[in-house]
């Protein structure tokens, strides 16, 4: 992929590449290819500009002298991922009873109970901006499920997930402010839209997510 970039990647794939780029996880040919790809795409360039500005701001801000925020003690790592997987499992059970059919849900006989590194999509925009693209990781996973996480405002309560043809499902907000659910991979190629509603200071608010494209319209 070191030649030109005549076509546009799918939004979710582009988002995944951008995330890796901003995390400085691209090297060599991959780095060169993606930089060439983004050069004439203003929305990607804008994100790079913001990231550049963040870096420059840190470097130029005397109030953030190195070590000023260094922790004397770092708490031991408490994995968030397994906790969220457990919560999501309760949701996938509910999903499996209707829309996708029971056979599509849960480990098949003889299958390992553990689903390692499922594809994960994180919708992490909580300010209601339009067209936000999700973060995607483990895109190449062979897992039959995709873990979807959606950031919620701190004041959100009574979160409910609605999917086409499915009974509404209550979602519990994790301590770090996310709701999550598992989605069958074999349904990803359909244009599925989920709606998450919640109470915010007594007002019911709704967020739609287009699962197939990885966008919040």
């Amino acid at each position: 992929m070191t030649s030109g970039t005549p076509t546009r990647m799918a939004a979710w794939l582009e988002s995944a590449w951008l995330a890796r780029y901003l995390d400085r996880q691209l090297e060599g040919e991959e780095l060169a290819w993606f930089e060439a790809y983004l050069l004439d795409k203003p929305e990607l360039v804008e994100t790079v500009e913001v990231d550049d500005a963040m870096r420059d701001s840190f470097a130029g801000e005397p109030g953030i002298a190195r070590g000023g925020h260094r922790l004397d003690r770092v708490r031991r790592h408490t994995p968030i991922f397994p906790r969220r997987i457990a919560a999501a499992a309760t949701v996938v059970a509910a999903l499996g009873m209707g829309w996708f059919g029971r056979s599509a849900i849960g480990p098949k006989p003889g299958m390992e109970a553990v689903i390692a590194d499922p594809t994960r999509i994180v919708y992490d925009t909580t300010r209601g901006s339009t067209g936000s693209v999700a973060q995607l990781s483990h895109a190449a996973s062979a897992s039959p499920y995709v873990l979807i996480e959606v950031a919620m405002p701190p004041s959100a309560r009574n979160v409910v997930l609605a999917l086409d043809g499915q009974p509404d499902v209550s979602l519990e907000i994790s301590p770090d402010g996310f709701v999550s659910f598992l989605f069958p991979r074999n349904a990803m190629d359909r244009s599925r839209r989920a709606e998450i509603s919640y109470l915010d200071h007594g007002v019911t608010r709704r967020r739609s997510i287009e699962i197939a494209s990885g966008r919040t319209p």
């Binding site: 804008e46 963040m54 770092v74 994180v122």
Partner: peptide, 20 residues
């Protein structure tokens, strides 16, 4: 810092979006 990539992504992504 003894954190996982999930937390790293969350913090950096949110900070970047807030900055934007």
């Amino acid at each position: 810092l003894g954190i996982d990539a999930t937390h790293f992504h969350r913090v950096v992504f949110r900070a970047r979006e807030r900055f934007r």
